[in-house]
Design a protein around this nucleic acid. Structure first.
Lengths: 234, 234
DNA sequence: GTCTATAGAGGGATAGAC
DNA sequence: GTCTATCCCTCTATAGAC
């Protein structure tokens, strides 16, 4: 625990995070990392054992506080509600806001981290499924439980699915900001991620409040006329 | 155009798709691809020029029909509505259903393609931004226009953002099925992607119908009491 | 069009001096 | 803890025989 904020260890972590976020883990070499960090190549193996060890350290440094914040936020929301189910909007914010905070605070990584998080799921798969699954799973389970109390008519599987939708809706725009610039004409991304994530809250709240999908029939309830042409072609 | 479905070219495409989907483009070597395809290593460069050429061909083969279907579906929905704005649900289905179809039809790639699509945005970035941007951009713009007519009170930037949320909500669960298994206890993924995507429709419809977020204040309208504790910690 | 053989670059890791 | 030098591996791409 030699913690000069500028120690070799820290410089490596920062450089690796930067490059992983920019071009992905697989395409980033230790040579590129140590060059950017202005540190010797062998230092990575000394401090982290291997490239995999470094990758895990980079992700863990950000994911742990993120998930802790999500859990503690949820506890606070529940406490404030007494025994009653908390407001759905509060729960959504408890989940989403920690990501925004992470991206706003340069000390926690700032905007760079956001892209890193976006790559988490694709990239991380091979590297540290075990750690990742453990940490993340607890968060999802806790949120699932609370959501089940707020939305008693929504079957558990549909709660899980909608949580997956939420994670995707949050991750993708963060990760693919640059791509979205190309695709949508750049104004989208002039706004910061901050704004975007705040707009995600009402979107997600409304999505969760949508009526459950009945399992056998395909949405039979509404009174709209169905334009059958929609279904005819691939 | 030698089109025996089992030509060397096709075998390479199939093997590459399989491996890209499983472990990503960067970590998949031409050696692994040609071994799986039971084809000579040099064949890749003969048929596709380079690894990048192969990557582009693999993605293009799936993305082109997908986006064409989205556009033609949208046209049909608009035609069926006469001059009036079509139903929001029809538009969402026009966008989402082609992905489901793709995943259902083994001839179009089947379940494998779904993971490939999930990696599209992260992976594709470096390879063929140009092609990708052109093709995809048209789709997003057309949907944007229609959505703007359906939801005249929602500012264009918020329509764009919500489209990004939708793409993420669709992409992530598809791409990370295996990860979701670990995280949520496996029942989620016993259901097929088919079911999941159908559940995405009402989620997205409700999300788009959520009231616009006013730009200056942070959601001042609702009558709920706000538990300020949510905001206190990171 | 298909194959073998190999060039040539770049990767991760480590031994051993300091 | 830091550095140099190097080992050994895998990769993409290509030349040239068939």
């Amino acid at each position: 625990m030699t913690n000069l904020l500028d120690s070799t260890r820290e410089r490596i972590l920062a450089a690796a995070e930067e490059l992983f976020a920019r071009t992905g883990v697989a395409t980033t070499s230790l040579r590129a990392i140590t060059a950017l960090a202005r540190v010797n190549l062998a230092a990575v193996n000394y401090h982290f054992g291997s490239k995999d060890g470094l990758v895990e350290a980079v992700y863990r440094r950000r994911l742990e506080p993120l998930n802790r914040a999500r859990l503690s936020n949820l506890e606070k929301v529940e406490a404030a509600a007494g025994g009653a189910p908390p407001a759905l909007e509060d729960v959504m914010e408890a989940f989403i806001v920690p990501v925004v905070k992470l991206g706003q605070d340069p000390a926690q990584g700032g905007p760079t981290v956001m892209r890193l998080l976006g790559q988490t799921h694709t990239e991380a798969a091979g590297y540290f499924r075990t750690y990742f699954a453990g940490e993340y799973r607890e968060v999802l389970e806790r949120y699932q439980d609370v959501l089940a109390r707020i939305l008693p008519d929504l079957p558990p599987e549909q709660i899980k699915n909608r949580l997956a939708f939420l994670v995707g809706a949050m991750t993708y725009p963060i990760a693919e900001r640059q791509l979205l610039e190309l695709l949508t004409g750049e104004e989208v991304c002039r706004q910061d991620i901050d704004t975007m994530m705040k707009q995600l809250v009402p979107f997600a709240v409304a999505g969760f409040r949508a009526p459950p999908v009945s399992s056998r029939r395909k949405r039979a309830s509404s009174t709209r006329k169905k334009s059958s042409s929609t279904r005819s072609r691939q």
